[in-house]
Amino acid sequence: MIRRLLLWLPFALGAVLFAAFWAGLHHPDDHVIASKMVGQALPDFETRTAMQGQGAPRAAQFHGGKPRLLNVFASWCVPCAQEGQMLMRLKAAGAQIDGVAVHDTQADLARFLAENGNPYASVGLDIDGRAQMALGSTGVPETFVVDGQGRIVHQQIGAVTEADMPTLLAKLGIRP
């Protein structure tokens, strides 16, 4: 009896493998890649000053004791324009938001901010995507919450919407 069952074992294993491959084929292979930097110290990143009279954001500024936002965006990015009003509301609620503009130019950025409003305390130009890679960011827009000790505590992937506001405000320690 046991020998009979043993004879069927390879067939059963084959069937299980087949089912696994079949399921894998029909499961869209599209992962959201969250940054592994969440929970770690905000890495040093270098950007160029985007607006005259303002410095570029630096990691060292994020140790002030108060949670802050670091928004990765670009003037050429449509959802970034859409999340503008949400960022303005966060700013109005008392959040400090700094921006990293990826693959952008001063002129395009100035036009973008004039059209969509400027919620940023400072913006840095990330010409080569170096700051974006240092943060483990895969696209725009993304928003990082950095606690007062310079540690990344949250990553929002994609545009900030109404539904994300309570989470972001809570992480910032702001009562709605």
């Binding site: 693959h103 995507g129 170096r130 974006q132 890679m133 895969t138 696209g139």
Partner: peptide
Amino acid sequence: CVVCQGQPISGSNAGLAGDMRRL
């Protein structure tokens, strides 16, 4: 390539893949 995920960065046209090749 973290943008077009089936491709290696050597064969991708995504901007971020170019940044990674440079890096």
